[in-house]
Design a protein around this nucleic acid. Sequence first.
DNA 1: GTCTATAGCTTGATAGAC
DNA 2: GTCTATCAAGCTATAGAC
Lengths: 186, 186
Amino acid sequence: MTDARRTDTRAQIREVALELFAERGYDGTSLREIAERLGISKAAVYYHYKTKEEIVGALFDDFLAGVDEIVEWAHEKGPGPETRAEVLRRYQDLLTGPSAAQVARLMQEGQSSLRDVAAAKDMKTRFFAMGRAVTAPDASAAEQLRMRLAVIALHLGAFMDQESLPVSDEERRTAALEVALELART
Amino acid sequence: MTDARRTDTRAQIREVALELFAERGYDGTSLREIAERLGISKAAVYYHYKTKEEIVGALFDDFLAGVDEIVEWAHEKGPGPETRAEVLRRYQDLLTGPSAAQVARLMQEGQSSLRDVAAAKDMKTRFFAMGRAVTAPDASAAEQLRMRLAVIALHLGAFMDQESLPVSDEERRTAALEVALELART
DNA sequence: GTCTATAGCTTGATAGAC
DNA sequence: GTCTATCAAGCTATAGAC
């Protein structure tokens, strides 16, 4: 196959953009930086994506579809502790995907800089839906908060850095799931 | 007292800046917006604060001092579940201060946009210190993660919006402390 | 202490050649 | 598909009048 080296620019743009967005934030990353790191010009980037927002939108899309699957499953199963536990396990699987951890990082700390990015609003909606699907309609504030924290626990397990929690990636993920499941028990 | 209306510009700048930073992020807020909302010029803002970073630094200072007090107390007491619980109670008290919740919001989602703001690094250091002070040196990853999540729980209790958790402010704070203390128990 | 004016730079995005 | 050149708009920050 002559196209072993076939990594088209479009994909490379997404790759580099995600890396920079996760690291320096959406606002903190310019198209110039993305282009520079790829050794192409800004205009070349604009050939592949009409706007900066379209890039981040593309980044969210796969992840969004994954969350949707989980929410759908949860809806069929109905609320309860077992549903919560299984949702969290599946969500951690989703986070284990190649670039999902970086997407999670971008989401987690980007509520302000992504405030007028349409895809980010969609994401927020999905997480609401996930919360509602796994807790009873009359759930207490503490119950709802626990589920939300469980999700954050998994996020931290996925992207927290060595400095903040000096253990192996594997160990960190395991601990995150453990704590998340504790939170989902009640 | 003729100076009942004495709220000097410097303080007003801090007030408005915090409001906007918390709402739209640090990068997402320009000095023009701050000046405009105060009915003064950008140059007037620069008279009071040399740089934008100095403003956010001033915002962090009071809060930082509050955290320092807590860390110092925790250090004297030594690690353990009771220390963790009391630290969290004191931290929530700190968060109940007039503008502390907004500072917390700014910190929470600003790791990327504040990446080269010196005061933010100081803050991160303090939170590390707090974690180390309340958990044993050989604490498991899960234990460390629980303490970190407990702090986040209090943050969410302080600034989460009505839409995300539709209960009263009082109820939300109470629930947050409840969950935080659960996390600190083990 | 606040203003106007402006320097100097970066940004997101476009036009048009190759 | 990528380039150079350019745009208008926005930014932080400064100079100097009042």
